[in-house]
């Protein structure tokens, strides 16, 4: 165990990349989730159909396959160079989780009681005002716990980026392990603990949101 500081100082070099991918993916996935979720409750059938197609494609295939696919297809097939592989990873993760999370956006919008829409029609609110002031505030409360769960899923997904050559926590862990085989148990336990420490605030957020969402929603 004397090598623990040694291992830590190696592995921690990947912390920046892991956190960067995590934060960027959370932001992009959330934006995608809202745009796609709102599109799926839109009255325009073309928009609904297109986003439905996107959601099913990305939910139906595996994230790790998508990650490899993007990392080879973007530069190779489409000649798109995002400058850094970080953006390839962020693109794959946020398109994947954006698709999943758009379903909770859609689900919670549809779960707001019909009476709420009727009351806002009776008060002559415009369609936009109904969504903005009545439906979305309630839908948000409902979706928050599940949203928190997905943030943890995204954190776990960031560990995949080492597979396309990004130098994250797991990447440095693997490097260290390859030269110090006997230390493997310490390396991976340390990695798991580090991921768990990053997850703790997300877990706390999720639990808090579970209690918040129980209040203030009409059923």
């Amino acid at each position: 165990m004397s090598s623990l500081p040694d291992i830590f100082s190696t592995v921690v070099q990947g912390l920046g990349v892991t956190l960067q991918v995590l934060v960027l993916s959370i932001i992009c996935a959330s934006i995608i989730a809202f745009v796609a979720g709102l599109s799926r409750v839109n009255t325009n059938p073309l928009l609904r159909g297109f986003t439905g197609f996107y959601v099913e494609i990305f939910r139906g295939t595996s994230l790790i396959v998508q990650l490899f696919w993007f990392s080879y297809a973007l530069p190779g097939l489409f000649n798109i160079h995002l400058g850094s592989d970080i953006w390839v990873a962020v693109l794959a993760i946020s398109l994947n989780y954006g698709a999943y999370m758009s379903e909770i956006v859609r689900g919670s919008i549809q779960a707001v009681a019909v009476g709420q829409t009727e009351a806002s029609v009776a008060l002559n609110l415009s369609k936009f005002q109904r969504m903005r002031h009545v439906i979305l505030p309630q839908a948000l409360r409902m979706m928050l716990p599940e949203y928190g769960n997905y943030l943890i899923q995204i954190l776990k997904a960031t560990s995949l980026v080492s597979l396309i050559g990004l130098t994250d926590l797991l990447y440095y862990g693997n490097i260290y392990r390859s030269t110090h085989l006997a230390e493997s148990p310490t390396v991976y336990v340390l990695l798991l603990v580090m991921y768990f420490v990053i997850a703790l605030p997300l877990i706390a957020f999720t639990r808090k949101m579970e209690s918040v969402s129980k209040k203030g929603v009409a059923s």
Binding site: A113, G115, Q116, A119, A122, P137, Q138, R141, G216, A218
Partner: peptide, 9 residues
Amino acid sequence: FQHFNLFPH
């Protein structure tokens, strides 16, 4: 309305 439909939030 019969079921009030107040905005709970």
